[in-house]
Write a protein that binds this DNA or RNA. Structure first.
Length: 473
DNA sequence: ATGTGC
């Protein structure tokens, strides 16, 4: 594999062999994975062989090894030119994403005396851990179908939130095209009682405060002045999305030969977007996306109740955006507008100012891009910029440096918790193993990832947030 | 990520 440094923030993997386009990795020298013993760059090259891929196989500065596609990968295929959709390009946690809430008129100093109490109440109010039930125990199939078709919009219609919440959600809180018939009975079964739950791993709900402001005009417009208190929610579609990914990978593995598609890694199983298998996956994926959005809406309500009871203020939605999704979008390719299937896996959509999919009140500033760090480090809000070649995509987090196993081997939950509390960060975990696996040192430096994203021209920094309390999945 | 693994 030949890698060329194009700029200090962009590397090109030369097109060779079965690759249909080059690979483009946005990273600094220190963030770039080691090409000899890291699988992630090989995955970027593998993705470049997919039928219909256009422009390049992209990777964001938080790139690391994933299932088939790298995490931090972006690939767009031309729908009208045999372009494929691949479940591995979305990942197992379909529509995993981030929602940021801003506490109305609550500065950090005013929260601090009651922070411990608020965290104890969140500890009770936020269900989390593997296999847990959510705050909304959906008992009947009709209600779950409402969630799968209507997402956060349906949740609000059912009384879980206010209409203003939806204006600040990607796609108004509901992704069109959900096909409940493409969701297996097993996936439905797993989804029934998990709406409004965090899950595990890197999922969390954090109380944060604005620590640094980079663009005062944009930040003020978003209510993000220095010291402002926020709540960040990071979760996805739980067991339902996982089951849908499993089901459709299996179906596509069986179908690929029929379409004459060969891929260098069986984890890149795919089918043409315009095939029954491609359409079934996209329909089920949209259903999982809506489940993920309803999930974040229910957790918003749970956190809101705690803040309203214990801080005498409420929480407003700043934005909700997914970083694991494939979407049908229009983009120019070689001077012509084409319909593309844009896979973002561990990559945040980042629309520039005046993009037609933005709500009117964000038209001037662009889409808020929400990027969490680790439980001990900063998170960021950025905004989309106009000349992003990666189909308006940015990093999604710090990116793992160590495997879960390696991270847990070097420490334990008590050590990690003590380290964090020493720095004034309260932790409410769900499993000791999970706390150890999620230690901040297991990840890349989020400040460096954000700096690289900003300098590479993928998005622009607005504010830096630091954690005050972490409710960990 | 996941009722964590054939």
């Amino acid at each position: 594999m030949k890698i060329i440094e194009e700029t200090p923030y962009r590397y090109r993997i030369e097109q060779e062999g079965a690759m249909r386009v080059p690979g483009i990795v946005y990273a600094t020298k220190s963030l770039l994975p080691d090409e000899r013993n890291d699988m992630a760059l090989t995955q970027v090259a593998n993705v470049a062989t997919l039928p219909g891929i256009v422009r390049a196989s992209f990777a964001m500065p938080d790139i690391h090894w994933g299932y088939g596609f790298p995490i931090g990968g972006v690939a767009a295929t031309d729908v009208d030119d045999g372009g494929v959709v691949s479940p591995g390009g979305v990942g197992f946690d379909i529509s995993c994403g981030v929602r940021l809430l801003v506490a109305r008129d609550l500065a950090r100093e005013r929260l601090e005396p009651s922070l411990r109490a608020v965290m104890d109440h969140l500890d009770h109010a936020i269900p989390r851990g593997v296999g847990t039930k959510g705050v909304w125990r959906v008992r009947d199939r009709a209600t779950l179908e409402g969630v799968l078709s209507g997402g956060a919009q349906y949740a609000v219609q059912q009384g879980h939130g206010v209409p203003e919440d939806l204006q600040r959600c990607e796609d108004g809180g509901v992704l069109a095209g959900a096909d409940v018939a493409a969701v297996s009975g097993r996936a439905i079964e797993r989804g029934l009682d998990q709406v409004g739950s965090l899950g595990s791993g890197n999922h969390f709900l954090e109380i944060q405060a604005v620590d640094r402001v980079y663009d005062a005009a944009v930040a003020t417009g978003m209510g993000l002045t220095e010291g402002a208190v926020c709540v960040m929610i990071h979760t996805g579609s739980r067991g339902l999305g996982h089951q849908i990914c499993t089901d459709h990978v299996r179906q596509m593995e069986a179908a690929m030969a029929r379409y004459g598609i060969t891929v260098p890694d069986r984890q890149l199983a795919c089918a043409p977007v315009e095939s029954p298998e491609g359409q079934a996956y996209l329909g089920a994926m949209a259903a999982a996306a809506n489940y993920g959005r309803a999930n974040r809406q229910l957790l918003t309500e749970a956190a809101r109740r705690v803040f309203e009871a214990h801080t005498a203020t409420t929480l407003d939605v700043l934005y909700d955006v997914s970083h694991n999704l494939a979407k049908i979008e229009q983009h120019p390719v070689d001077g012509e507008t084409r319909t593309l299937c844009v896979h973002r896996k561990g990559a945040t959509r980042s629309l520039p100012p005046h993009h037609p999919d933005l709500p009117a009140d964000l038209a001037e500033v662009g889409q808020p891009v929400l990027i969490p760090g680790t439980m001990g480090t900063a998170s960021y809000v950025l905004v989309g910029v106009g000349d992003n070649p990666a189909f308006f995509s940015t990093a999604h987090g710090a990116g793992r440096l160590q495997s879960r196993h390696a991270a847990a081997r070097g420490t334990n939950a008590d050590v990690v918790r003590r380290d964090l509390e020493h720095r004034g960060i309260l932790v409410r975990g769900s499993s000791r193993r999970g706390i150890a696996e999620e230690k901040p040192e297991a990840y890349k430096d989020i400040d460096e990832v954000i700096e690289a994203s900003d300098r590479a021209g993928l998005a622009r920094k607005v504010v830096r947030l630091i954690p005050l309390g972490v409710v960990k999945g």
